[in-house]
């Protein structure tokens, strides 16, 4: 796989039984970005939010208790680690599971806002994220049935994966990583704990980068 252009040199591989996560130049770069964003999510303090009153100089401080953001901070960090897993894993089915984990932590971040409008968006997103498991797992199953393996190491460069499975894999990741579309509509940016929304955008971006790599390699 490492003679293909997209991956770059092999840096490190971690043998976990049948699932062998690996660091190539490409995935190690993505992983470094994920680590930076996990640190941002862990150390930022969105409790100090200011509301500016338009048309005057006045501002007032929003009262946000520590407990209100604890849940969304936890979920943002969990989402970061799920993204890390999705970026590093060397197995198609394991990748789809990590994508689902990213999807459900995104639902959690959106749902932790109490606003009714935001919850409605979270619900609609959750429906799409849930039915996206069909193309995701379907793609993994078709790959297993037609090539006899799930490991990206074995599949790399073989070109044996049918187009249908590739299309379904991309469609599935689209469904799980569709959250940013909802964020814009739900005005969650102005809700409390808004900085964690950053993690939603970031994780879906990285999922897309990773699935592009997988589809080009297999």
């Amino acid at each position: 796989m490492f003679d293909l252009n997209i991956e770059g040199a092999e840096l490190f591989a971690l043998p976990f039984g049948d699932i062998v996560p690996y660091f190539s130049v490409y995935s190690a770069t993505l992983a470094a970005f994920v680590l930076i964003f996990i640190l941002i999510a862990a150390f930022d303090r969105p409790e100090r939010q200011l509301n500016i009153i338009f048309g005057g100089d006045a501002f007032y401080e929003k009262e946000i208790k520590e407990g209100d953001t604890r849940f969304s901070r936890f979920m943002a960090i969990a989402c970061g680690f799920a993204t890390l897993g999705a970026v590093l894993t060397g197995d198609i089915f394991n990748f789809t599971l990590f994508a689902v984990l990213v999807g459900i932590t995104n639902i959690a971040i959106v749902a932790s806002a109490g606003n009714h409008h935001v919850l409605n968006a979270a619900f609609q997103y959750g429906i799409v994220a849930m039915i996206a498991t069909v193309p995701l797992f379907g793609a993994a199953a078709i790959i297993l049935a037609t090539t006899g393996t799930l490991s990206i190491w074995t599949l790399a460069g073989m070109g044996a994966v049918p187009l249908l499975a590739k299309a379904m894999l991309i469609l599935g990741v689209m469904g799980e990583g569709i959250a940013p579309l909802y964020i814009g509509k739900a005005e969650i940016i102005r809700a409390q704990g808004a900085p964690f929304v950053l993690m939603i955008h970031f994780s879906s971006l990285l999922l897309f980068l990773r699935v592009t790599e997988i589809v080009l390699v297999i």
Binding site: V100, I104, I107, T133, A140, L144
Partner: peptide, 25 residues
Amino acid sequence: LILPGLVVTISKLMALTEIYLVKEG
């Protein structure tokens, strides 16, 4: 592999149902 598939469904359904309850009040 069916077992993870099943668990994913259960857990998402659990989260979504609770969101639905809160959303509809």
